[in-house]
Nucleic acid binder design. Sequence first.
DNA 1: GTGGTCTAGACCACC
DNA 2: GTGGTCTAGACCACT
Lengths: 119, 119, 119, 119
Amino acid sequence: MAWNFSADKPIFQQIMDVITADIIRGKYKPGEKLAAVRDLALEAGVNPNTMQRALSEIESTGLISTKRGDGRYVTEDEALLQLVTKNYVAEKTNDFIDSLRILGLDDKQITMAVEQCLK
Amino acid sequence: MAWNFSADKPIFQQIMDVITADIIRGKYKPGEKLAAVRDLALEAGVNPNTMQRALSEIESTGLISTKRGDGRYVTEDEALLQLVTKNYVAEKTNDFIDSLRILGLDDKQITMAVEQCLK
Amino acid sequence: MAWNFSADKPIFQQIMDVITADIIRGKYKPGEKLAAVRDLALEAGVNPNTMQRALSEIESTGLISTKRGDGRYVTEDEALLQLVTKNYVAEKTNDFIDSLRILGLDDKQITMAVEQCLK
Amino acid sequence: MAWNFSADKPIFQQIMDVITADIIRGKYKPGEKLAAVRDLALEAGVNPNTMQRALSEIESTGLISTKRGDGRYVTEDEALLQLVTKNYVAEKTNDFIDSLRILGLDDKQITMAVEQCLK
DNA sequence: GTGGTCTAGACCACC
DNA sequence: GTGGTCTAGACCACT
């Protein structure tokens, strides 16, 4: 069953986002072995090359690492995991705030917009 | 003086964002005539075709309209303008919230993240 | 008070259509004198050049004629008027039929479409 | 072998009409993959950019969609297809009827005009 | 002078 | 190989 991809972002990036999120929220535990590339590709309904690329890019963030001839493993470095999470959240948040500030919204209006959407 | 474009999004989209924001925050007033495509292109440091495309796409949102052989004008329909603004803000906010929720953050954590970045 | 023009056809053509229709349906009687170009332009809310062009093009169909230094007059040749009308209707109808036939609709379906829209 | 284009409408619009009609009348089946932009452009005898534009605009109606790095596919959503068809026919028909009504023709005369041309 | 269209050709990201 | 974007430059229709 293929995952759901939007057309306006590269598929490999969307896969990155999903897997990174899975690691951060603990679906994949530290030290856990990931499924084989072709199995993941099959599950996501994408070309194995695409999945391969997504995993390589995640690897470059340090969240996962490859053991040659064995497979890919989630990092056990919990400090790194928290750092990545923190940066990820901060980046998303700052981008969001900037995009509203550019419209002329002040801090109070931004807070209100968030609270309204959270309801 | 060319504008500053990032490499990870199409230029025409970045132009759209800038001009849309300019209209929303009132740099361009309702009913005001925009500069000619060629002039805007010169100002932004892009090819006239690129600017043309950005403007056409904004036009499809209704924020601006073309008078043939004359020029482009910002809509005078203030209701539409407010609607577009509202949708724009809501969309950005929802995207942001979703991107954090997928990590497992709850509403309180999201609010906190925003407040921390606003400081 | 300006007329209502759509953005997807040249304004002078839209003016032609309106005035031609006015002549055909008898709003302007045969032999009647038209208002001055600048008055018509004012009424339509367009540039006098545009109105001028529209009138010249209608003139080339024979429906109106110019008396130098006097003004423009609707033709008194009723036979011509009927001929133009007939051709006009036939042309519109054939274009319409062709546009539906190209979709694979047969004669019966076309008749039905028309009747449904007439209700 | 270049297609036949008339001079009074933009080429990309004429291409849109042809391909849209092809989809509606089933020449391209739902889910079918379209030929590559460059190939279609060659077939139509136009610049690839022009074909690209035509296809993008059709895409915005939902009739076709793009799989990145793969190609363009006709929608499999038959309900959408029928809806588009219905709207398309209704729009053409209404435009036609309006253009005759503005001449002062009543419903009966319009029906007669159609029947006469169908013979 | 204004916007709109088209061609030509290049480069890139993606699968 | 696929579509997407951008540049360059030309031509046209409209006001």
